[in-house]
Each structure stands twice: as C-alpha cells, then as structure tokens.
Simulated scan of single mutants.
Amino acid sequence: MKNILILGGTRFFGKRLVRLLLDEGFKVTIATRGNTSDEFGDQVERIQLDRNDKTSLMKAVEAGQEWDTVFDNICYSPQAAKDACEVFQGKVRRYILTSTLSVYDPAPRKHKENDVNPYIYPVTLGGKDDFSYGEAKRLAEAVFLQQADFPVAAVRFPIVLGEDDYTGRLEFHIDHIKQGQPIGIPNLKAEMCFISSGEAASFLAWLRKQRVEGAINACSQGVVKLSELIGWIEKETGKKAVIAKQVRDEDKSPLGVPDSWVMDTSKAERLGFEFQPLRAWLPALIGRMSAER
C-alpha cells in the first residue's frame, strides 16, 4: 500500500482529495495544525504540526518514514518551501505543490506556464508576511524546482469555487445583490477562469500518476466576463446589482481585477486531462447557493 501525505487536508478541495485517494485504496496521512476536525475517523492517520516551523515539520515527519507522494496545499512562502526541501530529502518520490493563478499578473491574454518560469526565477528567502501572496507563491515554486532533490510539480489553480468554499467569495456577491449593497468591481469586461473544488481535487489525484515536473496550469474550460457572472446572480436572485468603482473596502469584490486573468491549459490537456466546461457547473452552483442564502 502506497503512503500519501497531505499537508492541509481537512477542508475544501484538500478534503475532497483525501476522499478520492481513500477510495483508490491508499494509506493517507493528514498533516495540519489540528484546528479543524474531519470526517474520516480511523480511515486516515493524522499528524499535528505548524507548517511554518521547520522544527515542528521535522518532528512530525518521523525518521525512516517514506512517502510515495506528498501533496502540499499549505505552503505560502519560500522559506516554508526550503524547509520542506530539506525535511523531505530522500523521503518522498513525488511532491505536488498547490500554487496559484496569482503568480501571473492580470493581462488581456491567456497565461502559459513559461510566462513565470520557476526554474530560473530569482530566489529570495523569507516568510509569507514578507511578500505579496503572488510573489510568495512564485518564490515557493522557484525554491522547490531549483533546490529539491525529488520531483516536484506546481499546480497553478485559479480561484476555486464550491459550496464548500470557506472564503465565501460567491456568497459575498449573492448577499450584496440580494441586499442592494454596492459591489466594487473595477472592470466588468474582465474575463476570469475558475475551477470547482471537485475538479481541483480530481486534477491533483490525476496528476499523481503523471510523470510531469514543473509548473502546470489547471482550470475549467472557458472563461466568463465578470459582467456575465453578475448577470447569472441577478437572474437567480431577481435583484439588480449595484456596481461601483469607489466603495468601502468591505464592499470591494474579491473577484475584482483590473484586467482579464486567465490561463492556458494546453499542457495539462496534452497529458490527457479533460477539464469540465466552466458553463456546465458555475451557473448551476450559483443557482444552488442563491437558493440557500
């Protein structure tokens, strides 16, 4: 039986990933701070650690323990990446880092992986508070791809959506529109890509079987303009959105971007992964969530 370690697996797509791997018959260990309970009972083993503390990470990963695959959903800095490179040296056959669309800047074109090349990106060490989120993820990728002695793939996800999304990004828009509150969106014409929490988990589970290293983009097929997304919510709520460019910080859309923010997924598609059409699940999700609010 192969050993799988998931750093961060008690909520959202990490939780879904655990279920997929258990269904495939793997021995799964979840490593978190222990602040969030899970539903897996004795089906999984658990490790309690502070991902940002190297000593804690070293103590949690016992000497002699080897892993077929480590999924790292909670690496947010280059220092945390460097610590993992050292702690897991000689202990893992494959490492899959959850990265982000935020490594790219918004632009009126689809980003390809080489637009930000982690193999040559200059490394600067520091904690997550020393950098913006996007820069911290760029640097974490660079550390792993330049310094790890094990194979690493960095999955660049866009914003992940689902009824299990603890960040409440869709709920923000649904509630604001229902209550007639203004929403700050700088560019309604901007196009965005998304992925569902279920598809994100499926992609990670699929990637474990592929012999691919480096960065790889993953998002559902197609894009949607923010104006269209707002229109879907208006249709489901029966209310007209109040869109403004100048609003209080708490009314700024978590999806508000100055320009389009989309990715090219041809690399993953060439490897054989078939992404779901965005329009096959996002309007339906909005409908369900609007009915629940």
Rank of each mutant, 00 (worst) to 15 (best):
L21Y: 08
L21T: 05
G25C: 04
I30E: 01
D38V: 12
E39N: 04
F40Y: 04
E45K: 15
L49P: 07
L49C: 04
K59M: 04
A60E: 01
D72N: 12
I74E: 06
D83T: 05
C85E: 00
Q89W: 15
Y95K: 14
V103F: 10
Y104C: 06
R109T: 07
K110M: 08
H111D: 01
H111S: 07
N117T: 01
Y121S: 07
G126S: 02
K128I: 10
F131E: 00
F131M: 01
K137P: 08
A140S: 10
E141T: 15
F144L: 15
A148Q: 01
A153S: 11
F157L: 06
F157E: 00
I159N: 11
V160G: 12
L161R: 03
G162C: 04
D164S: 06
R169V: 03
E171N: 12
G180Q: 02
C193L: 02
S196G: 09
A201G: 07
F203M: 04
L207H: 09
R208H: 13
I216C: 06
Q221Y: 06
V223E: 10
K235C: 08
T237W: 05
A241N: 03
Q246H: 14
V262M: 15
T265I: 00
E274A: 09
Q276P: 13
R279F: 09
A280L: 10
P283W: 04
I286Q: 13
G287W: 11
R288N: 05
E292D: 11
E292T: 14
